[in-house]
Amino acid sequence: MTIATTTTPLPVAAKPVPLAKRDSRTEPRLVRGLIIGFALTFLTVFVVLPLVLVFAQAFSKGVRFYLTSLADPEALAAIWLTLVTAVISVGLNLIFGVAAAWAIAKFEFRGKTFLVTLIDLPFSVSPVISGLVFVLLFGAQGFVGPWLMAHGIHILFAVPAIVLATTFVTFPFVARELIPLMQEQGSQEEEAAISLGARGWQTFVKVTLPNIKWGLLYGVLLCNARAMGEFGAVSVVSGHIRGETNTMPLLVEILYNEYQLVASFAIASLLALLALVTLIAKTILESQIEEGRPHSDD
């Protein structure tokens, strides 16, 4: 196809049929154009346009107003809470995720299939339900709620519940990314390291971790994106205390409902920016993971 269209045609007597037309594997130009055009239109209307609108709205009253909106104490508190929540829940899921993936990929034990299913649970449950679970657990009428209240420990409608709900919802990301990768890599390299005298920790740091690092980063990236963007579960457990238990997504909704459109979109633009950064990082990581896969002749 490229030969026929891009190089200067050789002087030939009869007008040659372009290769592309004779190649039955490619569609006629018109069909191709239609399909590509349709896909592009769809993408523009449903993805690009909303994204552009977010930024357009955010800056509709100028950069100064945009910055003022972000510097509002309530906004700063929400940004801070979102960051803290993300750091803690990503950190926890990093540890849990590696441990779970390690157990599933490298050992045989009873109930393994059940554990794999359990890891997927947060994906299959509606985030609202995930939040409600914690309300039922820690609420005033809940399982351990009264006991906690009697001891002056605040979990529900406070930061701990937000962290717990976020951790729950984002649990599968790291584990799900690592399990197939570790299963594919097997445990021979670890066995080799051990037989060469490496202790458990050395084996993990020098052999296992380098082999899974790109997959791990990928899982962390997705986990982080979801942790910062989580709305449903956090909304249920947060209590919406202004300046205290509002994360960025919650604040976006509150401001929007109060007709503070520009302020609302200013915060939303930060989340959109996070999405874009995530997307780019994800693309880079995917190519790195591909390189780390075992070669077919191994």
Partner: peptide
């Protein structure tokens, strides 16, 4: 003794070389 303390050299069927080293 554990595998690491036996001073046994083991060559794996599929070599198990450390791919990132």
């Amino acid at each position: 003794r554990g595998a690491g303390e036996r001073h046994v050299g083991f060559v794996f069927q599929h070599y198990a070389l450390f791919r990132h080293m």
